[in-house]
Design a binder for these strands. Structure first.
Lengths: 101, 101
DNA sequence: TAGGTATTTAGGGAATTCCCTAAATTCGCA
DNA sequence: TGCGAATTTAGGGAATTCCCTAAATACCTA
């Protein structure tokens, strides 16, 4: 648990929004971009960039930062990289703040 | 709960340390600087700056940011401003992350 | 009211973060 | 093999954050 790295990875409005959107992709991304694999894989970079209204490279880097902090999980599948939340880490963060911070 | 403001107020190593030090002032500040009022009031700016090894104005500003985010509580007493943790807000943060983020 | 101590406000240089475009890389498929 | 689509890497201008010194303010006490 690198608390500072996690907090920094969340200290930006867009990145915080991404985390929230990924909590329920079906509520936040166009249905035609999603599939039955979405719950297991997450959402691909370009769909997240589109939703964020930002360039793909910027969002790619944001997602990389968040998975480096272990708050997102990346899965490469063919030419796509899918990102989903790391629910375990998010719960650990909550517990750390509650008990240790 | 302004989540982004709270996270930003914690996204710096020194500020995060301050929050941890204030969890147990008697373990982190010289005894002669503390008193029976410490648990109720917290620790004054210059003692925190000294512990952090940073200038008083810098730490004063950090503390102001953290109390603006409602994560610390300031009490002015004479010429001193004491800062203590806002345990309620910290618990709310943990709960928000656990349940809403 | 004058002087001393604690803090805050102002101002600014250095470092970091934000977020873009261009180029490079990765991978699927004809 | 070669083209097209998705992503990542590189490079950099603009904005923000970091954290200092100097000056101003607040408050106490003689």
């Amino acid at each position: 648990m690198e608390l500072l790295a996690i907090i920094k990875s969340l200290s930006n409005e867009t990145r915080l929004n991404i985390l929230k959107w990924l909590k329920d992709p079906f509520a936040h991304f166009p249905e035609e971009e999603l599939s039955e694999d979405t719950p297991a894989l997450g959402v691909c970079v370009s769909d997240i960039a589109e939703k964020a209204g930002m360039s793909v490279p910027t969002v790619s880097d944001y997602l990389k930062t968040m998975s480096a902090a272990n708050i997102l999980i990346a899965t490469r599948k063919g030419q796509w990289t899918y990102y989903k939340r790391n629910e375990k880490s998010i719960q650990e963060l909550a517990i750390y703040i509650k008990e240790k911070l």
